[in-house]
Simulated scan of single mutants.
Amino acid sequence: MTTPTARLAELGLSLPPVAAPVAAYVPATVSCGHIFTSGQLPSVSGELIARGKVGAEVAPEAAVDAARVAALNALAAAASVAGGLDQIGRIVKVTVFVASAPDFTGQPAVANGASELLVAVFGDAGQHVRSAVGVASLPLDAPVEVELTVEPLGVTW
């Protein structure tokens, strides 16, 4: 059985360090048998990979990549409280906020950057419910922000 860590490596990726909060919050917490992450931005080594509104300063294709990076950051936050990536049993919900130009309506396609990464890493356990929300702006002028709700291994209902 291939683990999420092995699948991530097969994709040429690894979990980044958990991003330091930019305000008064924690990156992830556990409650009621689930892990909830704070919104994660598309940053690498503390720097945003893109800035601006999707459909204006940021091309939709670049926003898809940004959503993927933000999802990887959210996985790092979730793994930090789960005891590692392989202790995440399934992805429950993904919310993707897209800083959008007024006429941009492609938020679901942008959110696919996050969703497709999660399915690639977790297989069927990566299938999730999702919201893709267009917003006027995001912190630090980020084009996307991703938050996750995940279920750790061993949780049964």
Rank of each mutant, 00 (worst) to 15 (best):
V146P: 00
P143L: 09
P21V: 04
M1V: 15
V155P: 03
V121H: 03
T3W: 08
V146L: 03
F36A: 10
V133H: 07
I91N: 04
L8P: 00
Q40H: 13
S115E: 14
A114G: 05
G123V: 03
A6W: 08
P21C: 05
E10G: 11
V155L: 12
V129P: 06
G84L: 11
G134I: 10
S137I: 12
I88L: 05
P17T: 09
I49A: 11
A76L: 05
A50P: 01
P143S: 08
G89M: 07
P42M: 10
P21D: 02
G55H: 09
A77E: 00
D103C: 12
V64D: 05
G55E: 08
K53A: 15
A77Y: 00
S131L: 13
A76G: 05
A9F: 08
E10A: 13
A125P: 03
A70Q: 00
S38E: 09
N73Q: 07
C32S: 14
G52A: 06
S14T: 15
A74K: 01
V69K: 00
T149I: 13
V69M: 00
D103P: 11
T5G: 01
A63E: 03
S115G: 15
P60V: 09
A19D: 12
T95P: 04
A109K: 14
F104V: 11
Q40L: 10
T156F: 14
A23N: 12
A101C: 09
P139Y: 09
V64S: 05
P27N: 02
P16N: 09
F104C: 09
E145R: 15
A70G: 00
L13Y: 06
T105W: 13
G52Y: 05
V22S: 08
R51P: 04
A76I: 06
A142V: 03
A6Q: 15
T105D: 15
G123D: 08
R68M: 07
A62R: 15
P152G: 00
A125S: 10
P42E: 07
V110H: 07
T2W: 10
P42R: 10
V144R: 05
I35C: 01
T29W: 08
V121Q: 00
S137R: 13
E47L: 15
A76T: 06
V150R: 02
C32E: 14
L148Q: 02
K93F: 13
V26S: 10
V54I: 10
L138M: 07
P139Q: 08
